[in-house]
């Protein structure tokens, strides 16, 4: 496949990331692989704690130190290995070539400095601009993300803006140096539903205008449907299914993906129908088995026997390709 297609913008291979905690070393991301083509879009979906944000922070080299570290695997961005890159090299990539927006626009901005000074800082770090030119660029950027009277807003402090406005500022800041890849870590989770749609639309539009790649991290499959070409479903630190977006919605192959889809409220079901939920809980990161980690929550008749087997403890199921580009964890008890 790699011989036919041009090399991807980002290629993550067998990424393992863990944290030193009081309970010992915990593996949060366990052998995750995916590619993002130039200008492409990928959605990473999963419940809280499945490792999707940790994956994003690993790409940015923003793991909390010294507790978090990449154990193994590689992250190749535009031909350059990031997993072992020096801090100085990463500084040249962060903000300039990879932009990131975060879940909490409330706390992601420094409360004691004006929007303008924080935005200009991002620009001035990477581009040889005068302060005046940087200021003009920031006003332009704020205008682009749909903030009215942008020039005047640059003097505002974060607390003077609403959550949606702050997230727009974050987006403007992330885009200021024209990155090749934008990582959006649950960009709409902390926002009102009406604002969520606006922000997603804005991201969609900006992405198409700038032709950059987008990695959208979310727990909401609905968000991904409109914005991503490919979906990565993560569970307990692993990728359990990877497929083009329409295939995920039409024929999910993993029980977990199916469960996620079914738990989205729909307009076409009866009013009195109960919204299905996935039974059981997300397992903790401590003492995870090597086998299919979703098995304890699977309704499959053989699930109990599988959990009791040696295979559950020690054999990792590989991903198999069902149709071109559609991969799923190869274990019958968690398959649809």
């Amino acid at each position: 496949m790699s011989q036919i297609l041009p090399s991807p913008l980002l290629s993550v291979r067998d990424l393992c990331v863990g944290f030193d905690t009081d309970a010992g070393f915990l593996v949060a991301v366990d052998g995750v692989s995916f590619d993002i083509p130039r200008g492409g879009t990928i959605g990473i979906v999963g419940e809280s704690g499945c490792g999707k944000s940790v994956t994003a922070f690993s790409i940015m080299g923003l793991l909390p130190r010294p507790a978090g570290r990449i154990v193994s695997g590689s992250i190749v961005f535009d031909g350059e290995e990031l997993a072992s890159a020096s801090e100085a090299r990463m500084r040249g990539i962060r903000g300039r070539r990879i932009g990131m927006i975060y879940q909490e626009p409330m706390s992601a901005l420094n409360p004691v400095r004006s929007i303008g000074s924080q935005m200009m800082e991002a620009l001035l770090l990477h581009e040889p601009l005068s302060k005046k030119a940087a200021f003009d660029r920031c006003a332009e950027l704020l205008d682009r993300v749909g903030i009215p009277s942008a020039r005047a807003r640059l003097a505002a402090y974060p607390h003077q803006l609403s959550g949606g406005m702050r997230q727009r500022v974050m987006i403007a800041m992330a885009l200021s140096c024209g990155p090749d890849l934008l990582i959006a870590d649950e960009p709409t989770t902390a926002l009102d539903v009406t604002i969520q749609a606006q922000i997603l639309e804005l991201l969609h539009k900006l992405r198409e205008d700038a032709g950059m790649a987008l990695a959208l991290i979310t727990h909401d499959l609905g968000v991904i449907a409109q914005n991503c070409a490919e979906v990565l479903v993560m569970y307990a630190g692993r990728v359990v299914e990877r497929a083009p977006v329409n295939e995920v919605f039409e024929s999910p192959a993993h029980l977990y993906t199916k469960g996620l889809l079914e738990s989205i409220p729909r307009l076409d079901t009866g009013r009195k129908s109960v919204l299905p939920t996935i039974p059981g809980m997300v397992p903790g990161l401590k003492d995870l088995p090597e086998g299919a980690r979703f098995a304890p929550r699977s309704p499959h008749p053989k699930a109990a026997a599988y959990i009791a087997s040696e295979a559950y403890r020690s054999v990792r199921p590989p991903l198999v390709e069902l149709s071109p580009g559609h991969w799923v964890e190869d274990c019958e008890v968690v398959r649809v």
Partner: peptide, 27 residues
């Protein structure tokens, strides 16, 4: 130092020490 805005600052490509001085210190 553990605040989100510090991560934002480092995420912009800023040196950690510089981020301490410019962002965390005043707060």
């Amino acid at each position: 130092l553990a605040a989100d805005y510090m991560r934002t600052a480092v995420g912009k490509g800023m040196d950690f020490r510089k981020a301490v001085v410019r962002h965390a210190l005043r707060n």
